[in-house]
């Protein structure tokens, strides 16, 4: 699908978003490699959500440059949307539709053929162990199952990149690990994973991690390198070190 030959899935150069006087995202530059699991960390209000919205084509940047899957974040937002998957902690699925109906709906939106949807749907339901629940409304499922399903739906159309916004909040420890197995699986087939989380042990599972503070990227490297840089043994301390200096708690 991709029309360009950039080696990077996501490129941001000086990407900025202002709301009036308030600079939500302040000249952020980074790139995400193809097939990478990229952790996008930051305190509440640091500007993560605004940044993700720009990358997903939901919001036009105020200034700076950016491409996602090779498409421009200003002019080609609809082509970006064709090549990404997206899941957030809330509202990823329609709670008043059943498991099957949700899969069919989201797969259909991306124009997958009916036969393809049918076979892949059966596979997916079997893989997630939801055979019994296939016709249940999603609203009635436990959160952990919902999130696994939401992720599978987000990568169902084999996008180049999948954006995950706090996918594991409130999920039990075992299911959380199963969720990460799904992420690894996706990364293995070459899907770039862009994930935000508040569980710092999950940061360890990422190839590289960026930490956003007050609208800027304060650190970006592999977890091992980051820990080395800050001279500590855990990502927890790294994060705490960076985020406690934040000035913008209430934004």
């Amino acid at each position: 699908m991709s029309t360009t030959a950039t080696p990077h899935s996501i490129v941001a150069e000086g990407l900025t978003k202002r709301f009036g006087d308030f600079v939500a995202v302040d000249a952020v530059s980074f790139h995400v490699n193809k097939g990478e699991i990229f952790g996008f960390l930051g305190a509440n209000g640091a500007g993560k959500t605004t940044a993700i919205r720009m990358l997903c084509g939901l919001s036009i940047p105020t200034s700076g440059k950016g491409t996602v899957a090779g498409f421009d974040v200003y002019t080609q937002t609809e082509r970006i949307k064709r090549n990404i998957g997206y899941m957030s902690q809330k509202f990823s699925l329609y709670e008043d539709l059943s498991v099957t109906e949700n899969i069919e709906f989201f797969a259909g939106i991306y124009g997958l053929s009916r036969d393809r949807i049918r076979t892949k749907r059966e596979e997916l339901i079997a893989k997630l162990g939801l055979v019994q629940e296939a016709d249940k409304l999603v609203g009635a499922l436990p959160l952990g199952w919902k999130q696994k399903l939401a992720f599978s739906v987000a990568v169902f159309h084999q996008p180049q990149i999948v954006f995950l916004d706090e996918p594991t909040g409130g999920v039990d420890p075992v299911t959380r690990r199963q969720f990460w197995d799904l992420i690894y699986e996706a990364a293995d087939v070459g899907i770039t994973v862009f994930v935000t989380t508040h569980y710092l042990d999950e940061a360890e599972y990422c190839d590289r991690v960026s930490i956003m503070v007050d609208g800027r990227i304060a650190a970006l490297d592999t977890p091992t390198e980051l820990k080395k840089q800050f001279g500590t043994g855990t990502m927890d301390s790294v994060f705490y070190e960076l985020a406690r200096g934040a000035k913008r708690g209430g934004a």
Partner: peptide, 11 residues
């Protein structure tokens, strides 16, 4: 309910 966001990130 916020579901419009999910629609808006699709093509």
């Amino acid at each position: 309910t916020g579901t419009i966001e999910q629609i808006n990130v699709t093509p």
